[in-house]
Design a protein around this nucleic acid. Structure first.
Lengths: 130, 130
DNA sequence: CTACACGTTAGAGTGAACTCTAAGTCAAGC
DNA sequence: GCTTGACTTAGAGTTCACTCTAACGTGTAG
């Protein structure tokens, strides 16, 4: 079990942000008798997944929907299909972002090549001696 | 020469946003005698490039720096090297974003595969008949 | 037992990038 | 000439995702 500061270090996220995610309904740590948050490995791994989703610009509200479906799941009402659909939608978003980035990377590479032609003596930043 | 509404349609960007970019120092359309903005192909292409940079999360302030270097360039003071460096930095950002996205895309694909195992009869969204 | 580092809360503040409003000007068609 | 619709401006408002503040409670080392 981890405290919020341990989770903060393990995920390189501020405690402020972790509490904010809890307030937004993304995390549900247990509490000690005196009210201090305790996180287990399941919560840690879930937070890590949330951070990946955020890094790929999934809105917090959509992540919350996913969590709510998870919590709403029961023997009489299985929500895994809806969760699958949410993931499929986000996967498509990620693929669209990848395409956009790859296209722009190429465009920038072309511009850089043009600039280098103006300065034949100038090596790329990465290859300059330091 | 285009009006703001033509440019808006051509770039699928609201006129509000285009004026905002001008206020932020990214665009410099000419004006008619009565003050109406006129855009030529150079400005159109530049706006299109700006939109690519924005789609890859380059901050407006950095784009403005690039523009200012461009405007500051003269025979006695060439700024193309600095512009090259700005592009190189952004290229690295784009590559980092690509790596992050590719990694998360894989993670989501794995989760989706796991969900599909629970529902063997369910084809991917993209393959379902409509 | 006391210092003090770390925890708690509600709620306010921040920064980026739009997004819109209000009040007015102007140009073209009937 | 008049209406209609597109244009103009300064500046206010919105959204998102944090990020921080203030005031207070807790737990452990010396």
């Amino acid at each position: 079990m981890y405290t919020i500061s341990e989770i903060s270090q393990l995920t390189k996220t501020t405690a402020h942000t972790i509490r904010y995610y809890e307030k937004e309904g993304l995390l549900f740590p247990t509490r000690t008798a005196s009210g201090i948050r305790r996180y287990d490995d399941t919560q840690l791994n879930w937070l890590r997944f949330v951070l990946r989703l955020r890094a790929t610009h999934m809105p917090i509200e959509q992540i919350r929907e996913y969590v709510e479906l998870f919590l709403a799941s029961s023997e009489t009402h299985d929500t895994s299909l809806e969760r699958l659909r949410l993931l499929e939608v986000h996967q498509q978003n990620v693929r669209d972002q990848l395409a956009e980035l790859a296209q722009t990377e190429q465009l920038i590479a072309d511009k850089i090549a043009a600039y280098r032609k103006l300065h034949p003596s100038v090596a790329p930043e990465a290859f300059r001696s330091t």
